[in-house]
């Protein structure tokens, strides 16, 4: 069908599902990536750089002791292991001995209630979940030089352990702190061979600058690009999943850190990089047997 269209190496959902996801990702392994706790266990076990895990809470009886243990830190992130769409994530920082998050003071009881809600599955569409408490990443100044607000990250697509495409996702003034393309964030293409930023795509049009300022980002070098590239390769190798979308943030002190691993990464990255996934795969000599 639609033979009159030349695909130019671009992949639709049908082709992605049938040629990338189904043959490379077995359903029984999805949870290794989807569940943040399982994912971090694997990352830690193989010494992959990622945020330090402060605590994993399974049961209500553990909340008190775990939260006591976390008092030694100055900043942390509380997340449901199986949350959807960023729901239930709480970033807390200690200021003058008090925990603060999104401009509000959190008393110990408030934090414990939030953790209890996570465990009862409130944010995960299921009857129970686990709570992950981990170190809070301090974004590298590189991100701030493009746009200061929100939580930006890199998305690297790997196929059979080979990174084939990458983009930088940045929030905008319209995206409410989120970096997702369909939530009005922008994507910035990355040249895989040089590690330089290419064009900015806002879902409709291309430009050379972030929509909220006029500084040109085209040609900017991604710091730690080689480390970032190597980190995504190393991460892809330790999961029994052949097709992954790996989310990476660059920490101010620690360099590239793995944030999340996705088994069904979206196709918008093709538009951001002005290149089809099939074309990117074909350009990789190692993958040409596909």
């Amino acid at each position: 069908m639609f033979r009159f269209i030349k695909p130019n190496g671009v992949m639709g959902i049908n082709k992605r599902n049938r040629t990338l996801i189904y043959p490379n990702n077995q359903r029984k392994h999805y949870k290794l990536a989807d569940d943040k706790v399982e994912c971090k266990q694997i990352l830690h076990k193989h010494g992959i750089a990622c945020a330090e895990t402060y605590a994993v809470i399974h049961k209500h009886s553990e909340i008190k002791r775990s939260w006591q243990h976390c008092q030694q830190y100055n900043a942390l992130a509380i997340k449901p292991a199986n949350g959807c769409g960023g729901d239930g994530i709480l970033i807390l920082r200690k200021k003058q001995g008090q925990w603060e998050g999104s401009g509000k003071v959190f008393a110990d009881a408030d934090v414990k209630r939030h953790i209890a809600n996570i465990i009862t599955g409130m944010y995960s569409m299921r009857s129970e979940d686990r709570c992950l408490i981990e170190a809070c990443i301090v974004p590298h100044e590189f991100f701030g030089s493009i746009y200061k607000e929100g939580v930006p990250d890199f998305r690297v697509i790997t196929l059979k352990g080979v990174p084939i495409m990458a983009m930088l996702r940045m929030p905008t003034s319209k995206s409410n702190g989120k970096a997702n393309l369909h939530q009005k964030g922008v994507g910035i293409g990355v040249d895989m061979t040089t590690g330089k930023l290419t064009q900015v795509y806002d879902g409709c049009t291309y430009s050379d600058n972030h929509p909220d300022n006029s500084r040109c980002v085209k040609g900017m070098d991604v710091p730690y690009w080689d480390d970032l590239y190597a980190l995504s390769m190393a991460t892809a190798k330790i999961f029994p999943l052949g097709y992954l979308g790996i989310d990476i943030v660059i920490d101010h002190h620690l360099g590239p850190q793995i944030m999340e691993v996705n088994v069904r990464p979206g196709l918008g990255i093709q538009l951001v990089n002005k290149m089809g996934l099939q074309a990117a795969i074909n350009a990789q000599p190692k993958l040409n047997t596909l």
Binding site: F2, I5, N14, K15, L271
Partner: peptide, 18 residues
């Protein structure tokens, strides 16, 4: 179930690349 071509709406979505 074996169809791997574009969906009609994707032709619109990926129009800049096609």
């Amino acid at each position: 179930g074996r169809y791997i071509g574009f969906r009609l709406v994707e032709i619109v979505r990926f129009n800049p690349l096609l």
